[in-house]
Nucleic acid binder design. Structure first.
Ligand code: FES
Ligand code: FES
Lengths: 159, 159
DNA sequence: CTTAATCCTGACTTTTATACTCAGGATTAA
DNA sequence: TTAATCCTGAGTATAAAAGTCAGGATTAAG
């Protein structure tokens, strides 16, 4: 069970943009590369995807860079990871309806387990916004409570 | 975000043992290999680890095989995955106290995110037992409710 | 006692996906 | 005009995962 650098770096870079950018001044990839210790070329690849997913917009030319397309509390970690690397998918059956991952069975015995696990992860990542990371929320998983009244993360220390 | 075959096959194989074995008659690896479409040699590797983790016990010789060491509702999926593949770990900082994954910072900005995510996954996997899989529970992630009164999975359909 | 079925183990090979680089072009502020 | 940036596709290298192989140990059954 692991996460690759594509997802990891994309999140780190987006946090960096959220932290050092604002509505007028974009953040350049070379700055991000240095602060986050990520190769520039690799970042270029990642931001190509992030831009296509409309999470950031770019300004070309000298003094160019990237800025967030929406405010940092309307961008979830799930958005970023989906954009960067192929989405969270733990099952391995083809998406063809009625087909499982095995020759004989329609669905293997563990299909629901992996599906449930994927949902669990996705819903966690959806609840956390870029702003939450800057605010150092997401500290205590046991305190994650869904609040219907707002889209934000409620939390309380649990110890 | 993905899970490797080690963890996946280990769970599939354990479900198979739980389904086809009982306290007296062990299940042979060649049977599992055929039913679950997994190479025999690969299973041998996996069961070496599962045995060392005391999840199964072996009977050698003809008519030998494996049986569960504990009852199927006292073996969690987390137990199996921990035994089979290196444990769920999403952070990438060395375990040395006070050291982060970056040169400068003590902890990178996203450390808590990955840590929380790992905890989220682990606690999900701990709640689900082999027996739950056989009973086709673990279907609905939104229905997962921690019940202090029992160690089992509570669920209700949510649609 | 012999055979065949199984577990047991370590080392080895193959394959694949990831991670990363490189080269060259387009755009724009100074 | 220059230098800093974004932009893109193709290519390479590395490491991890996946899977194989060979040989040995144990034991039930004939
Ligand atoms: S994972 Fe969907 S059928 Fe096996
Ligand atoms: S993941 Fe722990 S410090 Fe970066």
């Amino acid at each position: 069970m692991k996460i690759g650098t594509k997802g990891r770096y994309a999140v780190m870079a987006m946090v960096d943009v959220a932290k050092y950018g604002n509505k007028t001044t974009p953040v350049s990839l070379s700055d991000i590369a240095e602060r986050q210790e990520i190769s520039l070329s690799y970042l270029e690849q990642l931001f190509c995807k992030l831009r296509k997913a409309h999470l950031v917009s770019s300004m070309r030319g000298a003094l160019g860079g990237y800025l967030l397309s929406r405010s940092s509390d309307h961008i979830s970690i799930a958005d970023i990871i989906d954009a960067a690397e192929e989405p969270v998918r733990l099952t391995r059956c083809p998406s063809i309806k009625g087909k499982g991952c095995m020759k004989n069975e329609v669905q293997c015995l563990t299909h629901h387990l992996w599906e449930g696990m994927g949902n669990q992860i996705s819903s966690y990542l959806k609840k956390i916004s870029l702003q939450d990371i800057l605010d150092k929320k997401s500290l205590e998983p046991c305190a994650l409570i869904e609040s219907p009244s707002s889209n934000h993360l409620e939390y309380s220390t649990c110890s």
